[in-house]
Design a protein around this nucleic acid. Structure first.
Lengths: 339, 339
DNA sequence: CTGAAAGCGCTAACAT
DNA sequence: ATGTTAGCGCTTTCAG
């Protein structure tokens, strides 16, 4: 059916070996012959069968990236940056979304065993549920880089944002603006993410000598509707809250609608700070103040750690912790405070 | 390195053929033997090498989906629905983003020739630039489904939204609310999309006996910043405009920020209608009135056409045109008009 | 500079 | 019920 290297060789009247030499820029071939082969290949629109190649080379030059969710635009941005870096290192990307289903995550983790990809970058959601599978990857020394999470899985390359700092930056900003009743959203997933952010939130309060109210925290799923519901509930129960720290920008966007429905204006009657710095945050009605996720740097580090691991499997594991920065825009009303 | 079926056979003390029978639920095998093989496979964590399999079967059970852009969340939603349907038909999905670069689109189109995927669903951006490559796909009878676009490429399965109807629905809605100066954004890409929407926009005006002002149209790229700039420019030049029809919801979101910066309130001083019905449109500060893209149905049709084509290559090509519906929320202020 | 031949791991036609 | 064997298309060792 498809045109193979044998067909090209036949048309060019050479052996497959010679055709191969021409097609792969190997030396020791007469320029004339090379031209004949390339011409035949072009005419036949020859494309090497990638499965045959991967089968013999035992390598795919493809990496898999497992995201938790396809709705949150932050992962689209990550995908972009990861793809760019991977490409420059000679790898293609296979993007996968577990969509909150442990089974899908598991299925994707198994891809490496099918030899589909040379390694995996995982934004894990179900480190606990799929614990056994993760250990299996580690035992088999599969190239793997985890994004986020604490140092649970020893021996695995890891890149994380300093979430304590993120929580601290966001909270201190709000405290500095005079807020004393600050609500905070907690992710249900992403083990280890919660503690960091909360610790930073608490420390910032302590530094100002202010109390932390447990009732100002609320658990929240990762879907927009979850954010909408959780924020509505929190503000209804604790109307004295004047500021909100959301654990991602996507969810923070839902806060705007909640505020409007409660006849509160952002930032005047409700300050909002997010986390991630998604593109939309710049262009929504009230540009969003947020803690930046250092996405470009994070993406590059993830790719580099993985490719290094693939190419030299035997170096010691690394853990890279990135320092987030506060991006002040308008959703906390600095301009008001100044006036 | 990796464990092959030969290794499993060896451990289970049977021939590879028998191991194969056990692992693939073939009949004619003693239950006892089957159990022994499966047990060995489990112990060794055997996973069939997918490249060897694809090589011999000449089939991957994978389809490629080429999107134009990874930023616009609408494609994340499409990905989700496409994935669900494909899965139920026994195919995995390989999602790709051309990111506004013709070369990337071209590269991805070539994937079929590498036998990487069994067929392609394309949201084309560069039908013109890559014309030759598209013809090559068609000549070689590669399973291909195009989303959108007019009947440019004959003989290719195609699913499209009735964009004339979309333009008409949006415009009539605004006219019915009393707007007579309606701005409209034009996509630079997506040949054929423009005419439909504009025709509907014009027809709606004609039906009311109202003139169409060419100066109310403005070209606009697909990035958020393009929308922000274009909308700002349009409203600055034509301040009498009181309503805006954006060719997608993502861009429409930028209108909110522009409005705020011009001290106009949405919907009071500026009505906005989008196209796509993305999830965010429901949860942004002023829930967005939009024309729905029928994404679930569209995704299912795309997958079905492609899978049908893969499985029975010889039926005549089909073109499916979907009817969009208006989704009225608050960004055009119906509730105000009623008052 | 060119070619013959084996092998990657799986599948399947054909024995036994 | 089980086994032998060839072949998918590419890469590569080894000869010429």
């Amino acid at each position: 059916m498809a045109v193979s290297i044998y067909k090209v060789a036949e048309v060019a009247e050479v052996s497959p070996r010679t055709a191969y030499r021409a097609l792969n820029n190997e030396p020791h071939i007469h320029p004339q012959t090379r031209r004949r082969v390339l011409e035949a290949a072009r005419r036949l629109n020859y494309q090497p069968n990638i499965h045959a190649r991967n089968l013999v080379l035992q390598k795919t030059n493809t990496i898999g990236i497992i995201f938790p969710d396809s709705r949150n635009p932050v992962f689209g941005e990550f995908a972009n940056f990861i793809d760019r870096r991977a490409r420059s290192r000679g790898y293609d990307c296979y993007f996968l979304h577990s969509e909150g289903e442990p089974d899908r995550e598991a299925k994707f983790l198994n891809l490496v065993f099918y030899s589909s990809v040379d390694g995996l970058i995982v934004f894990p959601n179900f480190l606990d549920v799929n614990r056994e599978l993760y250990s299996q990857l580690i035992v088999n020394r599969i190239p793997l880089v985890l994004r986020g999470g604490p140092e649970l899985l020893l021996g695995v390359d890891n890149v994380t944002l300093d979430l304590e700092r993120a929580g601290h930056l966001a909270t201190r900003h709000l405290l500095d603006l005079g807020h004393t009743h600050i609500g905070i959203l907690n992710s249900k997933f992403a083990m280890g993410h919660l503690p960091g952010r909360i610790v930073g939130y608490q420390k910032a309060h302590q530094e100002k000598g202010l109390p932390v109210h447990p009732a100002y925290q609320i658990d929240c799923g990762h879907r927009l509707e979850d954010g909408y519901r959780a924020i509505g509930e929190l503000l209804a129960r604790q109307p004295q809250i004047t500021a909100l720290f959301c654990h991602n920008d996507y969810l923070a966007l839902a806060a705007f609608r909640v505020a409007r429905e409660m006849n509160r204006r952002v930032p005047h009657d409700l300050a909002v700070v997010g986390l991630d710095d998604i593109e939309l945050g710049q262009y929504c009605e009230v540009p969003l103040t947020t803690v930046s996720h250092m996405k470009v740097q994070e993406a590059e580090t993830l790719v580099d750690l993985l490719c290094d691991r693939i190419e030299t499997p035997d170096h010691p594991p690394r853990r890279v912790v990135l320092k987030p920065e506060l991006v002040v825009r308008e959703s906390c009303g600095v301009h008001l405070a100044r006036g």
